[in-house]
């Protein structure tokens, strides 16, 4: 005998009326959550998956039985064209119909209707479609995010210092008009590489004097004059790891000289390497 979820020899096969009633009462009492606790609470010798599917596909009170109406069939056809075999999304737009019912109806009644031998556009005309048969790899980039603490600290400091600067100088506006991005280098293909001598706009974006007016030496310095370290500047989110991996960017010092107001960090460099940066 094997023990599964605390039961000896979990029951399989058709559900009885008694089992259905036990499950109904349990969900009425405890609600549709914590499925791992439901079999125990209901006194059922069934696994959690079986209980969940029985409820969602058969016992839920708002489930619609009977033939699909013309409107429902029309909706299934339209949504399938847009969403493909994403049955739960389609069922979500058909009140009272389960994903299982929609899938079964599609497979038994509608699938053959939609198969066509030639690629035609929606009015039956032949059109140019992308017939390029190269294998395209779908890439899933790992999303990275900034640590909220570090970002808030940095923003608060910059806000405070800019505020001080404005008070001292009486500047209502510290911005200059931004130049438009330069045109890309001419190339014959969609190359992702940037020529070595090409300084991209985001690499020039924050260079001194380009966006921010220079100010006299009397004004206070932006950032951490004491050279404090802002660690955990950004985090890498990854589904492959249980926790998020943190990378430290050491000695991020906000401000370089007392006599100017430089923003020399490049966002993309800042994110792509773990070297020292002066903002």
């Amino acid at each position: 005998m094997t023990t599964v979820e605390g039961f000896v020899g979990v029951r399989k096969g058709a559900w009885t009326h008694e089992e259905d009633n036990l499950l109904r009462k349990c969900i009425e009492k405890y609600g549709e959550q914590k499925w791992h606790q439901i079999p125990l609470r209901a006194g059922l010798n069934r696994c959690r998956k079986s209980c969940r599917l029985r409820w969602l596909n058969y016992l839920k009170p708002n489930i619609k039985r009977g033939e699909f109406t013309e409107d429902e069939v029309d909706m299934i056809l339209r949504l399938h064209k847009l969403l493909g075999n994403r049955w739960s999304l389609i069922a979500g737009r058909l009140p009272g119909r389960t994903a299982n019912d929609v899938k079964n109806y599609w497979n038994t009644h509608l699938r053959r209707k939609t198969v066509s031998s030639k690629r035609l556009d929606w009015k039956g005309m032949k059109i140019s479609t992308n017939q390029n048969t190269e294998k395209i790899n779908v890439i899933k980039p790992q999303p990275r995010t900034f640590s909220k603490k570090a970002s808030v600290r940095m923003n608060a400091k910059i806000t405070m210092e800019l505020h001080n600067k404005r008070e001292l100088l009486g500047h209502p506006n510290l911005y200059k008009k931004a130049p438009p991005p330069p045109p890309p280098p001419p190339s014959s293909s969609l190359s992702m590489e940037t020529p070595a001598n090409e300084i991209m706009w985001w690499e020039r974006l924050l260079q001194s004097g380009e966006f921010v007016q220079e100010t006299p030496a009397t004004t206070s310095m932006i950032g951490c004059s004491d050279g404090t370290t802002v660690t955990n500047f950004w985090e890498e989110k990854s589904s492959m790891f249980a926790g998020s991996t943190c990378f430290e960017v050491d000695k991020i010092c906000l401000g370089k000289h007392h006599h100017d107001m430089d923003f020399e960090a490049d966002l993309w460099n800042l994110l792509n390497t773990e070297e020292e940066y002066a903002i």
């Binding site: 980039p141 790992q142 999303p143 990275r144 995010t145 900034f146 994110l271």
Partner: peptide, 19 residues
């Protein structure tokens, strides 16, 4: 609920700049 920035020269990573 996120704004993500992508650089086609580094397709393995994206950056969430706002949530």
């Amino acid at each position: 609920g996120s704004v993500r920035v992508f650089d086609l020269r580094d397709k393995e990573r994206s950056t969430i700049i706002y949530e």
